[in-house]
Nucleic acid binder design. Structure first.
Lengths: 234, 234
DNA sequence: AGCTGCATTATGTGTGCACATATTAACGTG
DNA sequence: CACGTTAATATGTGCACACATAATGCAGCT
């Protein structure tokens, strides 16, 4: 029932070019015809071919250079797109009920490892929050967060036992970019206690720092309960 | 020295719209002017505004519906794009020398967990490969792979001690899509031996299955040596 | 009221054209 | 031959226009 797409639409051109690459009709590294020629072949405008090829280039399947032309990419990097939602939604998408508990709230200087990564002075007072997210009343992940007080006005007056920092910040603080790191760690005694897990268990950890222009907003470490996995399509 | 982009170019329009969203000048959930009006405001063609807004929609920052108009996204999902390169390149990007050793090669039926996930009969003979990737002569990751013989013609005759399966398949087998899973596991005795690691160490694991149309190509499990982390920009 | 169908409207896409820009090949000069 | 300059070329972008498509709401009917 796959409606054969007209090769005069950019989607049609896109799938046809994709086919030629995937079937190795056009070999990796080989040059492919220029936009104008393809437009003639498909009986469409150059703009349409351009749109199709732009998508392929974004996906990393072809390399394009002005004047030099377009080639099939030599090392086809698979590009994985992960959507990182609000934790509440992540839990609810698993058909589980979500609950959040604030464990600790303090205004104090952050560990040097944190403050230096954020480019802040080591004595700068920051807001430290520690909390647990539950899925169906079982610990789902531990959120350990430091917030730059001067970058998020009003954050000191928020009641983080009523709303998770994760959610409040995403809705109220603006950010332009961030760094994210995924790793595996042994739980250890303290985390094991929080997550009701074996201290020897392997924990999936996500570290994230977000920025607004050059200014650090927050650094957060999410420690998922054992058994968690993150998956996606390629 | 940031050259102020002309708002008559799509990039200029893009950053201006981005700014209005990030500064909450346009609040989450709020409708934003239609393309035609914005085109007049910016003194450019509607096509140009469309291009800028399409990028924002792809990034998940706005929601667009015909007739209903465009709104600032309510829950701004951060979208992380991970480039998964050939392992050799991943090692070389860390300025380390890469080396690969084939540990095992066998044609035999796969464990049920594997064959069922690939949608194959449990007695189907598959090619099993196990190998180690080294970075500067230290174990970097263990690759444990099952290949569907009938989907990859000629794979039986390849000398996988000369080229890693990872690299050969990416260059020679075609695939249309795949599933990828990231998780954390305790190393255990056997993997610890392979990776010269503590059996109690936490291991970052990537599971990947690739398909060509509906046909399973290969299932691979990458176990990274302790200390590995995967990072990216948001 | 409740339903149907049509007009309206915003986005989605295609076309033909123009010019911009990056890159390479060809050329000419010393 | 080595070099800098120039011309040719493929992609990148912008514009004005047109029509397609999906969603919405209104009008009119029962």
């Amino acid at each position: 029932m796959t409606e054969t797409l007209d090769t005069r639409s950019w989607r049609g051109v896109h799938v046809e070019l994709l086919r030629r690459i995937q079937t190795k009709e056009w070999l990796p590294g080989a040059p492919i015809p220029n936009e104008a020629d393809l437009a003639i072949e498909f009986g469409c405008a150059r703009t349409t071919v351009n749109r199709a090829m732009r998508e392929l280039a974004e996906a990393g399947l072809i390399d394009r250079k002005r004047r030099a032309g377009t080639r099939v990419a030599l090392n086809p990097v698979s590009r994985v797109v992960l959507d990182i939602p609000i934790i509440r939604l992540e839990v609810e998408q698993r058909n589980a009920s979500w609950r959040y508990t604030l464990l600790e709230r303090a205004v104090c200087p952050a560990p040097v490892a944190i403050s230096s990564r954020l480019g802040l002075d080591r004595e700068t007072a920051m807001l430290h929050l520690s909390g647990l997210h539950f899925a169906d009343n079982k610990p789902f992940l531990h959120e350990d967060r430091w917030i730059n007080l001067s970058a998020v006005p009003g954050v000191e007056r928020v009641d983080f036992s009523a709303i998770s920092a994760n959610e409040w910040l995403l809705q109220n603080a603006r950010f332009t970019h961030g760094d994210i790191t995924f790793s595996a760690e042994v739980a250890g005694e303290s985390r094991a206690g929080l997550l009701s897990a074996d201290p020897a268990a392997a924990i999936f950890v996500v570290d994230r720092i977000t920025w607004d222009q050059g200014q650090a907003i927050t650094s957060v470490r999410l420690s998922y309960a054992p058994g968690y996995d993150l998956h996606s399509k390629i």
